[in-house]
Design a protein around this nucleic acid. Structure first.
Lengths: 247, 247
DNA sequence: TCAAAAGTGTTCTCCCTACACCCATGG
DNA sequence: CCATGGGTGTAGGGAGAACACTTTTGA
């Protein structure tokens, strides 16, 4: 295909007085949708950030935050822009995990979406422009969702379950300082299993990813628990040798 | 957005005498690209199927098989169609693993591609329409590729490495009947490591995924080796209990 | 003083690893 | 008969799993 052919397959064209884009072949719209997970340390549950749709289709329904891609940005940049708009965060964990392309998944026109998994510290989230319509839902108590977002959400959960075996991404959900119990409850919430306290602590400390702090936490007005922080340097050196979390 | 608004964002429009599609906002073209891996049991190496581009851009360069999505098909269907065109196979392993969206990755217009990993038995492949231009390359001896296909290829290889720990997808690369040695060499080619023969066989047999056949193979004119086949039933029951291949 | 959560160590078992010899076949 | 590859078992070590009592603190 030479330069001449390019000219006849895409062009700027006015239609009904509206400036727009013309293509010889049909083009789908492309969006990104973000499954934003947060961890509620008080209740030990995984939460997902949803927004209430203000426009049709599915007006009034809850949906994953997302939006159309701009011509100059990658889908990664698009997803990060969306994430920033909804949470105010610009450096959270963000990773694409699947695309969804059923032709009629959006009644307006054909829309293909690239879905992203985001992990944020709930307490760092500040409401964005859409703050009023955004809300955290317990992962086990999600309302009916717009489009195919329920499928996307379940796939994200499954992806998180697999991914956490290879990367300690759980730390992106916890505050800077956390107790061993919080870390364990988080892993239990994600993986849906129960661990023995002693074995869990032993295993985690074995990885040399945790720094024991001098401070103590007393969240439940009972005995004070040791606080830890995630040590990225130790983790990075560990990663080079390769590691796998076995549960 | 109501029905009226839908009408003004997308329309059938003729431009310079060519029937085409008009959108209020720019839409990227969407393609799928397939990284088709095969296993050369004779040399014990992983191969990838590439096609020589017959048109610009990158005319004459080698590239991953791929093509534009049709309005009525999902990307999965599109990829399977491409795979069938190139290999004649319609039931091979096929799974999407990532999308690529750098705005200028295709000089013609903006193209977003959904990349797929396909695993086929090389001996089952029959040349398609493009047979003349398709060729198998050793994974360690790949020529310069068109677009960002080199990146896609490396990502596919990495994806395969991770995926094989959770699903016994290696069997999709082997003939129906294979020797333990062939299976081992395949795993070594994919993972880039060497295994002890005895330990490898012990571990594999432990999973109860292999059926020992009565026949023997004598490919190298030496002692006959036991032939095995992959037992899907055993694997399926095993899968429910959850398993992980540890290497 | 009681209830609730935290800290901590040992034993047993299983699986992974390392390792070497004999067997069958073709040339 | 010899070269080549195939088949097989065991011993040792390390990591995961099971398991209970004591300590601290607030109420």
């Amino acid at each position: 295909m030479n330069q001449e052919n390019i000219a006849v397959t895409t062009a700027r064209v006015e239609h009904n007085g509206v400036d727009g884009f013309w293509y010889k072949y049909p083009h789908p719209a492309v969006t990104t949708d973000c499954v934003i997970f947060g961890y509620d340390a008080v209740n030990g549950t995984l939460k997902v950030l949803l927004i209430e749709r203000g426009i049709d289709p599915h007006k009034g329904k809850w949906a994953l935050p997302g939006g159309f891609i701009n011509p100059s940005e990658t889908t990664d940049e698009c997803a990060r822009r969306e994430l920033k708009e909804e949470t105010g965060l610009s450096d959270a964990f963000l990773e694409q995990f699947r695309s969804y392309s059923t032709p009629d998944r959006d009644p307006r026109e054909r829309v293909i979406t690239i879905a992203y998994l985001a992990l944020v510290r709930m307490q760092d989230v500040v409401g964005g422009d859409d703050a009023a319509s955004a809300r955290w839902f317990d992962i086990n108590d999600v309302p009916s969702l717009a489009f195919d977002h329920k499928d996307i959400l379940w796939d994200a959960r499954e992806y998180l379950r697999v991914r956490i075996h290879f990367k300690p991404i759980g730390f992106d959900l916890l505050p800077e300082k956390f107790t061993m119990r919080q870390l364990q409850t988080l892993y239990e919430a994600i993986l849906g299993v129960q661990f023995d306290r002693r074995n869990f602590a032993k295993k985690m400390l074995h990885f040399d990813m945790l720094t024991q702090l001098d401070e103590k936490a007393n969240p439940s007005h009972k005995r004070e628990a040791i606080l830890y922080s995630f040590n990225k340097e130790s983790y990075d050196t560990l990663k080079r040798k390769g590691f796998r979390l076995e549960f």
